[in-house]
Nucleic acid binder design. Structure first.
Length: 269
DNA sequence: ACATTGACCTGAGAGC
DNA sequence: TGCTCTCAGGTCAATG
């Protein structure tokens, strides 16, 4: 679930429900999710602080506290964020719970525990240490920047480049498939084999697909029913057919991950 | 410099 | 009902 669009939606959910709220207490329900800090210190540092701002970079969410620290959140494959009113409503697999002095609780939920929650002094230094490339939706990431990346990563497969967080931050398995489907490129292609027009189409698909997915997530999560009809995303199965040409969708393995493609629409040229 | 594999975790769903 | 197997939207380390 949590690729850039999902994390952006979590960010907005936090802004809508929890910004300006003061933390009365913090409950760490599973300490394995914490990175670089003990539950005791984590709770001590947060108690009495308020959430005053948010920042997303790729799949990472950072939350500013009115002290100088930042809360850092990464969601792995199954993480999410949910505000709830009463303790009775605490979602399953809630690993960290922020209890506000008023207006309920914010839960960091994560089934598979692949993800981390921590504290950072300085967001820039934190992102640098994580080794992340530019955020895929950052306006500074433009066609020229993408072409420069493509030159540097000419020997990678296109799907691997899209998912490489040190190159472009925010795209994972699902959205890399969607982007490649939308611009008609085969995931197995070498980046170096893309001509100028293919690079431009790929770059435009990155922006378009991610923006469209964020728009489809006005609620707390992406509603696949609100995605355009031409999206592959709701059709990730081998029983599905291409929304464009009706050819059977197939599953192949690329760079160690399963990719769903339309063998008719996605060419190697 | 790249791809591949397995490990980290838990739960859902399929098949028996 | 319950067992076993496979799979999953992320990342990291080890290996080829």
């Amino acid at each position: 679930m949590p690729e850039l669009p999902d994390v952006e939606i979590f960010r907005r959910h936090l802004e809508d429900t929890s910004l300006g709220r003061r933390i009365d207490d913090v409950e760490v329900l599973d300490s394995r999710i914490l990175e670089g800090v003990s539950p005791k210190v984590f709770a001590q540092r947060l108690r009495g602080q308020a959430f005053v701002g948010t920042r997303r970079h790729g799949k990472h969410l950072l939350v500013a506290l009115d002290g100088k620290a930042w809360l850092t959140l990464h969601f792995g494959m199954t993480g999410s964020l949910r505000h709830f009113a009463k303790l009775d409503d605490q979602p399953r697999h809630c690993r960290v719970r922020f209890d506000f002095t008023e207006d309920g609780h914010l839960g960091y939920v994560n089934v598979r525990m692949l993800g981390h929650v921590g504290l950072a002094e300085d967001p820039k230094a934190f992102l640098l240490a994580e080794g992340l490339g530019t955020d895929a939706l950052d306006p500074a990431f433009d066609l020229a920047a993408f072409k420069a990346l493509a030159r540097a990563k000419a020997r990678s497969k296109v799907k691997a480049l899209l998912m490489d967080q040190s190159a472009i931050a925010g795209i994972g398995n699902i959205y890399s498939d969607e982007i490649l489907f939308q611009c008609g490129l085969h995931p197995d292609m070498k980046v170096g084999a893309l001509d100028d027009d293919a690079k431009r189409r790929l770059f435009e698909a990155i922006k378009k697909v991610l923006e469209t997915a964020v728009e489809a997530g006005a609620g707390a999560e992406i509603d696949v029913g609100r995605l355009p009809k031409g999206f592959l995303l709701p059709r990730r199965s081998e029983e599905a057919v291409c929304p464009r040409c009706g050819t059977a969708i197939t599953r192949i393995k690329v760079s160690g991950r399963h990719a769903y493609i339309c063998p008719n629409c996605q060419s190697r040229h």
